[in-house]
């Protein structure tokens, strides 16, 4: 049983991970992530990269929706901006991948600020509708600015290059995607220990009170949009390197709903929630497929059970929303609390 964490210095008080146990688990995670590409096959590496990209984007949306309370359904369109920017930079200029990703994030960030302007006047569903409108406009631009985007046929993206090594397999891309996603996670986790992050939370909890407390809503709401869009842009850039083809249909509205669902299922307003939500939304359909595959039903059985699998996935999401409205992260916290107090039990 853990009975307390005595913090004896300011540095200790400020640290993101404050116990030896946490550092131990973090080291285990680090070693696992380093060893994973050497033991996993291409399928699992592919899924790992996809999960990492989705975590990066979900974390971006979490900054905006979970922490600042601004609902957005434009995440996929911002990812599209990042993806197209990376595709254009890579195809036309051949600039380094990291620079392209930053450019992708930057372009998405600038557009995000513009899209965020209505958030000063509208909230909730109204804001969601305005972000949908923005995503339709961006989709139109992707499909019709043919000289730049290749029109509906889209663009083919050359592989990212790292000191002459083309990152053209899941194994090689893993070493780009996962470190970038981890860096973004650490930055996001630290953001909410700063004035900016706490201002976001204050705006989410009560924007009028936040303004009374001296938080300029204009600046901070747009900052939140900018940061969220930057995350989406970088995630979109990673997506472009990962799939190597970018078309207007690559980033549909459903994708934005996917990320919003990930944030809600995982737990809004926590970094862990974004991570768990993205893992859940990406991996559960695959895990259900594996389970159906293990059943001795043959390919005809798979045809019959495929719709059932989709229903089960939907029911799982609804189930979590009903029985654990605080999301998967709350389940995780409960499990942690159980082990912290073991062999005793928490009351209530």
């Amino acid at each position: 049983m853990r009975i307390g964490t005595a913090k004896q210095s300011y540095a200790h008080d400020e640290s993101l991970f404050d116990t030896r146990t946490q550092w131990g688990w973090l080291a285990t995670l680090g070693i696992t992530l380093l060893a994973f590409p050497f033991v996993a096959n291409d399928y699992w590496l592919y899924l790992a990269c996809l999960v990492a990209i989705n975590i990066a984007s979900a974390t971006g949306l979490n900054i905006l929706t979970g922490y600042t309370g601004l609902v957005s359904l434009g995440q996929a369109a911002f990812m599209g901006l990042g993806a197209y920017t990376v595709a254009i930079f890579e195809q036309r200029f051949g600039t380094p991948a990291v620079l392209n990703l930053l450019a992708g994030g930057g372009v998405a960030m600038l557009v995000g600020v513009v899209v965020g302007i209505p958030s000063l006047r509208v909230k909730g569903l109204y804001l969601a509708i305005s972000t949908i409108a923005a995503s339709f406009i961006l989709h139109f631009v992707f499909a019709n600015w043919t000289s730049l985007t290749g029109g509906t046929g889209g663009m083919t993206v050359p592989p990212a290059n790292f000191f002459g090594i083309p990152l053209d397999t899941s194994f090689r891309l893993y070493w780009l995607v996962v470190p970038v996603a981890l860096t973004m996670l650490v930055c996001a986790a630290n953001l909410f220990r700063t004035r900016i992050g706490r201002a976001f939370i204050a705006i989410r909890d009560r924007d009028i009170s936040a303004e009374v407390l001296g938080i300029p809503l204009l600046r901070y709401k747009l900052t939140s949009f900018a940061l969220s869009s930057f995350y989406a842009g970088v995630a979109g850039g990673l997506w472009a390197y990962f799939f190597r083809v970018v078309t207007p249909e690559s980033f549909p509205l459903m994708m934005s709903i996917f990320f919003l669902a990930a944030v809600i299922v995982g737990g809004m307003g926590t970094i862990l929630g974004g991570i768990l939500g993205a893992i859940f939304m990406t991996m559960v359909p695959e895990v259900l497929k594996l389970i159906v595959g293990w059943l001795p039903l043959g390919s005809e059985g798979a045809v019959i059970l495929s719709p059932v699998r989709t229903i089960v996935f939907g029911l799982l999401i609804v189930g979590f929303l009903i029985f654990e409205p605080l999301g998967l992260q709350e389940l995780w916290r409960r499990v942690r609390r159980f082990f912290h107090l073991w062999p005793f039990r928490a009351q209530g």
């Binding site: 592919y46 799939f243 690559s250 390919s299």
Partner: peptide
């Protein structure tokens, strides 16, 4: 013949490809 459902989504189609070829 080894099929895998994709729900007509590109990421799921690629996952199926990786899984089946793996």
């Amino acid at each position: 013949y080894v099929p895998e459902d994709t729900a007509y989504k590109v990421d799921a189609s690629v996952a199926a490809f990786k899984k089946i070829t793996g």
